[in-house]
């Protein structure tokens, strides 16, 4: 169907489709976003591979304090700075006049939003499957000591804060740049983002449970179900995707109609 539409394009329309002229996805930015996240987490991962089973088995060994705790504290500091830096920047550069945004600009910002969602998705990919199960593998072969194990430092204090920065950044981006979001909130977006954010406080329940009443390392144990519940919040991503498709669809339509006039 679309192919017929393509064959019916006029020279003017083909001219309008020149890359420089219209907003579109900046693939190079997509590539760099993925590369940077992969590189940073990958470096962390390589470090873990080398240092976890050697100097990471016991919090109370001096080696742990040399090789692991500085990493933890560095993550806390960098994470805090990044959180306030990113959101501060997004707020300072916010759109002051949402009504005046042209469809073309708005479409460009939706592609920007997609880049944010993409960052969120990549970090979630790292955290959800990869970092979480590194912790599963770790606990089943070692003896639990404190809340600071190498895999916890990678999961709870690195991947999870990174996900929170991406989630809050995504929200701030939508709030400060997209006219539809300027004076109201999209409920599915709120649910999809607050689920992962709440995982961090749930770590408190998890560690409390492991200390107080649950001594086994069964990964599917009820002490972990708080995490599962929050993972379910991501079902609301469907609502976000439908919003993005609907809005971008009508913006693209508007721009096409504009080009035809």
């Amino acid at each position: 169907m679309s192919v017929e539409a393509l064959s019916g394009t006029t020279p003017a329309e083909q001219l309008a489709s020149k890359r420089a002229d219209v907003p579109g996805m900046n693939w190079s930015k997509v590539g760099w976003t993925f590369a940077i996240i992969a590189l940073v987490y990958g470096a962390h991962r390589v470090y873990m591979q080398q240092m976890a089973f050697t100097v990471g088995l016991d919090y109370f060994e001096p080696e742990f304090q040399i090789y692991w705790m500085p990493l933890f504290w560095a993550q806390v500091v960098v994470g805090g700075l990044a959180f306030f830096g990113v959101n501060g920047y997004l707020w300072m550069t916010r759109e002051k006049n949402p009504e005046a945004v042209t469809p073309r600009d708005e479409l460009g910002r939706y592609f920007g939003l997609l880049l944010w969602v993409f960052s969120f998705a990549v970090i979630l990919g790292v955290l959800g499957s990869f970092a979480t199960e590194s912790d599963a593998a770790w606990h089943q072969v070692t003896i639990r000591d404190t809340d600071f194990t190498p895999t916890h430092i990678g999961l709870f204090y690195f991947a999870l804060p990174a996900l929170i920065i991406a989630a809050v950044g995504l929200f701030m981006y939508a709030k400060t740049r997209l006219p539809q979001h300027a004076d109201k909130y999209l409920v599915p977006l709120g649910i999809a983002l607050s689920g992962p954010i709440l995982i961090l406080p749930t770590v408190g329940y998890n560690e409390w449970g492991h200390t107080f009443f649950y001594a086994e390392e069964l990964f599917g144990a009820p002490v972990h179900w708080g995490f599962a519940f929050l993972g379910l919040a991501l079902l609301a991503v469907g609502g976000v995707v439908v919003h993005i498709l609907a809005r971008m669809g009508s913006l693209i339509q508007e721009i096409q109609d504009e080009a035809k006039v």
Partner: peptide, 17 residues
């Protein structure tokens, strides 16, 4: 680079008990 850095595995984890 880090493959060359493998050291012995240190103890153990029981001291937190």
């Amino acid at each position: 680079f880090t493959v060359a850095q493998i050291g012995p595995a240190f103890a153990h984890g029981e001291r937190a008990q």
